[in-house]
Design a binder for these strands. Structure first.
Lengths: 168, 168
DNA sequence: TATTGTTATACTCTATAACTATA
DNA sequence: TATAGTTATAGAGTATAACAATA
């Protein structure tokens, strides 16, 4: 990392820099990335790291991680579904999802009800508290998304969205 | 995850299914992603996960992880530089880089020589073994890249590359 | 037999802090 | 006082395996 800088909003919001330091870090002249520059996976990952770091920081006040956020949204959009269905949709291992849901349940944001049709599975729902929290969470997520648009440029964000959204 | 297996034919048609799995998994009717679909970070991450999994699998015979690969390429392109410089270029914490280099050194792929100008720092170089291994590694990485192009489509890959490479 | 959810283990990656030896 | 490198710890994410209850 170490590049990045221009964007107005980063200064405004006091984002965070990796090297952070004041121009003195520039002492180490920049190295070339070599053939790394020709790997889509690498440039993809650099942006992805930026996104996660900004997301985590933006939602720090609610202590919500990306995976938790994705689970909350999918439960909201598909109330009453099982852990297996949620996990499969998001690509989260059932073992990991069990622990993740445990935490969300502890916070009273979701409930697991017994399923009438299959005694093995649980029906997942947001609680009233969960819905209330999600309003605030979505607002913060929107701030993050705006900052991302600012980081890559609104037009580039739209283009990336179109390229990535529909090939799945 | 569960999907994977970038079969050529599906990539060619651009169809691809997320659940990918053996048709029986279709039993669980597909859930909607809700507002997740409007987060660039999410779609970015899905592809990024695919890339890493394919990369790791493709380079499994050489037991090379993405981070190790990136370090090898940057050392190759910038021989004699310090750990600090490498780490800063790639955005890898110096603590983590130290362990990572330890492993590469154990495998005789890199060497750390004392720096003449600063007794604190090490100069990093590929060994002859390292250069030889890197030939094989790059060949596997190229296979991975080709599979990625097949997965997203060659044209889309190029477009993504252009959008992501130069805004840093 | 297969699936749902659970617990447990192990490994990678990230983020710190503390330490040394230099500068 | 700051930097280069090391070691240690803790947390998240990923990947397994094993288990009980149920299908």
């Amino acid at each position: 990392m170490t590049r990045r800088r221009p964007v107005a909003s980063t200064a405004k919001t006091g984002l965070r820099r990796r090297a952070a330091s004041p121009a003195r870090a520039e002492k180490l002249n920049k190295l070339t990335l070599g053939q790394l520059d020709y790997h889509l996976g690498y440039v993809l990952r650099r942006l992805q790291i930026w996104v996660f770091q900004d997301f985590i920081q933006t939602l720090a006040t609610m202590k919500v991680r990306p995976a938790q956020y994705s689970v909350l949204l999918v439960i909201e959009a598909n109330p009453g579904r099982s852990q297996a269905a949620i996990g499969q949709t998001l690509g989260i291992e059932r073992a990991r999802l069990a622990r993740l849901l445990h935490e969300l349940e502890r916070r009273k944001w979701i409930s697991r009800r017994a399923s009438g049709s299959d005694a093995r599975s649980h029906c997942l729902h947001l609680t009233a508290d969960g819905e209330k929290a999600l309003v605030r969470i979505k607002s913060l997520a929107a701030q993050h998304e705006a900052r991302l648009a600012d980081h890559v440029g609104a037009k580039r964000r739209t283009q990336l969205m179109e390229l990535l959204r529909d090939f799945g």
